[in-house]
Design a protein around this nucleic acid. Structure first.
Lengths: 110, 110
DNA sequence: TTCGTATTTTGCCATATAGCCAAATAGAAG
DNA sequence: CTTCTATTTGGCTATATGGCAAAATACGAA
């Protein structure tokens, strides 16, 4: 990380990095629909509770989600729903990649 | 990565991960304005050429940029300009975070 | 208080990443 | 062919990350 870039780029990268994990993308998508507690998310994801808890703390530290304790569970909410816009664009990249792949295959066959 | 999530989340995460670095965010932003070759980007970023080259290959492997050789330089272009939409949202998160921080400080002072 | 449930933290290991330098490669120019 | 320039690759080290299991914490209920 030795560069003379504006620190703003690091701040942005921190946020994006917090999203750059399959489980965390799932969590973001799920919380956009409704708030959820750790246990529920753990159940859906299918890995260790402690692992999911860490993912949630990554998202919380990035300011992407907020938490609220109710009864004896902690409920997480998506703070900036706009992050879901990311997904649409990412899908666009993925389908562009798929198309390219297809073209390459088509070429080879001929 | 032991979870029973749909593989689609991994594909998305790969793309987002490719963006999750200050230098690579800079490159994306720069390429959105105009195509650039490795040397130019290296100059702007201020780290080793090999480092920048590796960043570019990360972006290329993710399908985010494409390259074209002309004369004796390789010019890189942004393939899906929509990725720039990310930035607006990320900035929204950052300013929400800043606001929260401010509120916390305000509370403490009183 | 003690018990029980939900969540977080810690410790440890395996793997991945970023960075630089040096060596390898590609191709234009002479 | 040889040289020069631009870029990539390999080798290395340091650091960061993800995962699980176990211990610690928080807190409502009995």
């Amino acid at each position: 990380m030795k560069s003379r870039l504006n620190p703003q780029y690091e701040a942005r990268a921190r946020i994006i990095k917090a999203m750059a994990h399959p489980s965390r993308l799932f969590i973001i998508e799920e919380l956009q629909k409704q708030e959820r507690c750790v246990g529920e998310l753990t159940e859906m994801i299918g890995s260790d509770t402690s692992t999911v808890s860490k993912h949630l703390s990554v998202l919380r530290n990035a300011g992407l989600v907020s938490d609220e304790k109710r009864a004896n569970s902690i409920y997480y909410t998506l703070r900036c729903p706009c992050v879901m816009d990311f997904i649409g664009c990412v899908e666009e990249v993925l389908s562009a990649n798929a198309k390219e792949h297809e073209n390459i295959l088509k070429c080879c066959k001929k």
